[in-house]
Write a protein that binds this DNA or RNA. Structure first.
Lengths: 215, 215
DNA sequence: CTCTCAGGTGAGTGTTTACTCACCTGACCG
DNA sequence: CGGTCAGGTGAGTAAACACTCACCTGAGAG
C-alpha cells in the first residue's frame, strides 16, 4: 500500500479544497442556480469533467461547502475569557468588533443568506454553526448578569437577538446593500455597545419620561 | 377612438397585474434564476407565449415587479401623527409592530433580499423605497429628541439603524431562517422598544457600572 | 521496454431555458 | 354577411445547462 493517504501531500484533497474555494466564492456571488459548473471549473483552472470526478453532482459540491465552512472560531474563546471577568463592555465590543471590521469577508454572509433563501437542506445546519451558538452563549451570559443584578429583568434570548440584530443588520446594509459608512468602524462598535448596555441597565430611579417639550 | 383606456375595466392591465402577482410570489420563493417563465405562466393560468406579449423579457417582468411593489404606505403618516406628540414609546412601537406582526407577508422581504444578493440593477431603488425612508425619518426624529434633551447624545443615523436592525433581524430569523417564536408578538415588540428607548435615555447619574459580583 | 493506473480532458448527451412565430378565435362594426 | 383586430396559443428554436464517456498522459513498478 502506497502512502497516498499521507497527511503532508495529498493532491486529491488539494484539488478538492481548491474546487471548494473556487465554488464558494461563485456561489456566494451568484447563488446556487446562478452559478454554472463550467464557471466553477474555469475558476479552479480545470476542465468541467474533473469537477464531476470529485463531486458527483453540483448539489453535492454545494453541500460540501456548507458542511465545511463553519469557522465559528477562536472568537468564542476570547469572549469566554472576558466574560469570566464580568467585563460587559468588552464582551459585547469583542463580538461586535469581530463582525464589523474593515476587512470582513462578505462571502460567508452571502452564502448563508443564499442558502436560506434558496431553501437548501443544509441551510439550517450552516446557520446553527455560524450564528445560533452566539445567540445561546450570549443569552446565557445575559441571564447570568440579570441574576447578578447587573442588568434589569429582560428576556435574555430576545436581548441577545437584539444585539446580534444590530450588528448583523449593519453588515447587511454595508456588505449586501452597499450602504456607505459615514464614520469609522470603532465609533460604530462603541455606539452600538453603549446603546445596548445602557438599554440593559436599570433605568434611572428619577422618572424622567422625557415629555419635556410637549406643547 | 374606443374607450380602451377606461379606468374601470381594462383587461390588458388586469392581465398584467395578475402576471405581476403570480411572478412576484415565485421570484420571492425561488429567486430570479430559480424561476422559469413556464412556471410563471402556469401560476397565472395562461400560456407561456402570453407572458412575452406583455413583457418583452423575463428581466423586464422582474423589473416591473420591483418598480411597482413599494407600498411604504400609511405607516409613515401614522408615525408622523404620534411623533408630533413626542410619544416616543408609541413611535417605536408603531414601527416595530408594523413589521413584527402575526400575518406579515414574507414576500417583500424575500424579494428585497434576493434582488440585493443577485445584484439586480433596481435593487437599490427597491431598498430606497422600502427602507431608506424609515432610516432617514427615524434619524431625523431622534436628532430632534436629542436636541430637546429627551435622549442622550448619540449618532442619530446609527441609532435608527440599530432599532431597524433589531426589528428586521427578528423578521429575518423568523421568516427566512424559520426560527420559532418563544413568546407572543406584543411582548417581543415591547421588549425591543423598551430596550432601545432605555438605551437612548440619559444614564442614571449614580454610576453603577455593574461590577457587583466580580471575584 | 511494457504494464498499470491515478489524474485529467475534449467532445459529446439529453434536457431545460428564454424567447419567437404562424396561426387561431370570437366579439364588434358596417 | 364579411372584415378587423385585440387577445390568446401550440409548436417550435437556438443556446445553455448538468452530467457522461471514451480516451489521453506520464510516472512508477517489474
Amino acid at each position: 500500500m502506497k502512502p497516498t493517504t499521507a497527511t503532508s501531500r495529498n493532491p486529491a484533497r488539494d484539488r478538492q479544497a481548491s474546487l471548494i474555494n473556487s465554488a464558494a466564492s461563485l456561489f456566494a456571488a451568484k447563488g446556487f442556480k446562478g452559478t454554472t459548473t463550467k464557471a466553477i471549473a474555469r475558476a479552479a483552472g480545470v476542465s468541467e469533467a474533473l469537477v464531476f470526478k470529485y463531486f458527483p453532482t453540483k448539489r453535492a459540491l454545494y453541500t460540501a461547502i456548507l458542511a465545511e465552512k463553519a469557522p465559528l472560531s477562536e472568537l468564542l474563546n476570547a469572549v469566554e475569557a472576558v466574560a469570566r471577568k464580568r467585563d460587559d463592555q468588552l464582551v459585547f465590543t469583542l463580538i461586535a468588533g469581530y463582525r464589523i471590521r474593515p476587512g470582513a469577508d462578505p462571502t460567508m454572509l452571502r452564502l448563508l443568506l443564499f442558502s436560506a433563501l434558496e431553501g437548501h437542506e443544509l441551510a439550517d445546519m450552516f446557520f446553527g454553526k455560524q450564528h445560533r451558538v452566539f445567540y445561546d452563549y450570549l443569552a446565557g451570559y445575559i441571564r447570568t448578569r440579570i441574576e447578578e443584578g447587573a442588568f434589569r429583568k429582560i428576556d435574555p434570548l430576545l436581548a441577545a437577538r437584539a444585539f446580534i440584530g444590530m450588528v448583523v443588520h449593519h453588515r447587511l446594509l454595508h456588505e449586501i446593500f452597499d450602504v456607505p459608512l459615514h464614520c469609522p468602524h470603532q465609533d460604530i462598535v462603541t455606539t452600538y455597545v453603549e446603546l445596548f448596555l445602557n438599554g440593559l441597565r436599570h433605568p434611572s430611579t428619577s422618572k424622567n419620561r422625557g415629555l419635556s417639550h410637549v406643547r
